[in-house]
Design a binder for these strands. Sequence first.
DNA 1: AATACTATTTAGATTTGTCTAAATTATATT
DNA 2: AATATAATTTAGACAAATCTAAATAGTATT
Lengths: 219, 219
Amino acid sequence: MNLTNAEENYIKSIFKLQDGTSVVSTNAIAYDLDTKPASVTDMAKKLKEKKLIDYEKYQGITLTAEGRRFALQIVRRHRLWECFLVDKLSFSWDEVHEIAEELEHVKSEKLVNRLSEFLGNPTTDPHGDPIPDAQGKMSKSKQLVSLDKATSKRLEVAGVSDQSSSLLEFLKAKGIRLGTQIEVIERYDFDNSVEIKIKNQSAFTISEQVSKTIMVKSL
Amino acid sequence: MNLTNAEENYIKSIFKLQDGTSVVSTNAIAYDLDTKPASVTDMAKKLKEKKLIDYEKYQGITLTAEGRRFALQIVRRHRLWECFLVDKLSFSWDEVHEIAEELEHVKSEKLVNRLSEFLGNPTTDPHGDPIPDAQGKMSKSKQLVSLDKATSKRLEVAGVSDQSSSLLEFLKAKGIRLGTQIEVIERYDFDNSVEIKIKNQSAFTISEQVSKTIMVKSL
DNA sequence: AATACTATTTAGATTTGTCTAAATTATATT
DNA sequence: AATATAATTTAGACAAATCTAAATAGTATT
Ligand SMILES: [Mn+2]
Ligand SMILES: [Mn+2]
Ligand SMILES: [Mn+2]
Ligand SMILES: [Mn+2]
């Protein structure tokens, strides 16, 4: 079966939103894809026809097993291209999402697998997200905690829960990247901000809004 | 101005077909893009509107200066990706055209220029065709002769005038690649076939149809 | 239970890119 | 010059993907 770019974007969005939750709402997809609910309903009918989703009027959407298989392929392509851009073409992690959003639609299995090999079969992308293998097996996103909820003092950045380039640019400016080691100096209860320190830098404070998006593991 | 994939494919086709000739015909484009003349007429109106081509009913099509600029960008992207696929992902020259046909539409200047740098700013693609630089400057396709018209006995393969994978696969099977050195053993007038020999191989004969597509330079 | 609000779907349009069949224009042949 | 053939354009249609505005269904609040 050959999917259009639009269909692939919808499948990927549904896959992402379905994580944990049982069904995905029309509005959630529309918001995620920056489109209108009416368009989502239209597409839902098409994807149901193709047996990629289960969908009944007003009942929300879930991927079928086949839809999930496609989703994992697309996610694999997306994340491998992100690795390529960062590792080989020296892009920074805030610049790669948009480009990978286009590259992911080039449908050649041979290309993806060769690319993966060329990159050394990486298992996580530049944002710390796991990359499905050729069979669609993906290691669970590790049990990470967001920085605002972490308990230990010495932490390592292992991911971000928001891919927006505004956030990623901000983190880059503050010197926060994947693998960056963070020391928590102080937590302020009144606004839930955190004062942190990065090696060779003076300490600074980040807001709760930001610390919520930084996923860390303790060292 | 932002071009759609379809518009880019038309612009590239017109650019290719215009080489030498003054104007390009509706039918030639339709044949090249495997579409119908009526569709070409429709698209011609759109591209004229966007000032990328000069076009008057029944008078044929030529690119404007702006159209040519776009064409060179697309050709650059196409050929750089072909280099990437062959040099970095070990594809053979007959496998890359279709994939590059999709990759060429990813429109990020930064991506193209980083890719070019990563590849060592190559000046010819895996088929011997020149790659325009970031400014759209492209060295003229060298003055090559097709094998059926070559006069000297010792030749080197420098390109092919047909990108079809059936031809490229055939050449690969015969051991003919870019840079392959060929010795002409005999030319047969009755069918214009040529007997040739490649280093470390026994001699074999190729038809006029094939020898016409092999572009060579003398050693 | 009636009302208000939110979520979702439908109806009807639009844009892009394509097609077939018919009409028109250009070119070649007698 | 008349006719045949080839090239091109037009008319009218369709599928994909989207939208706005209106209708309907579901949920929450009084
Ligand atoms: Mn995408
Ligand atoms: Mn990512
Ligand atoms: Mn293309
Ligand atoms: Mn090429």
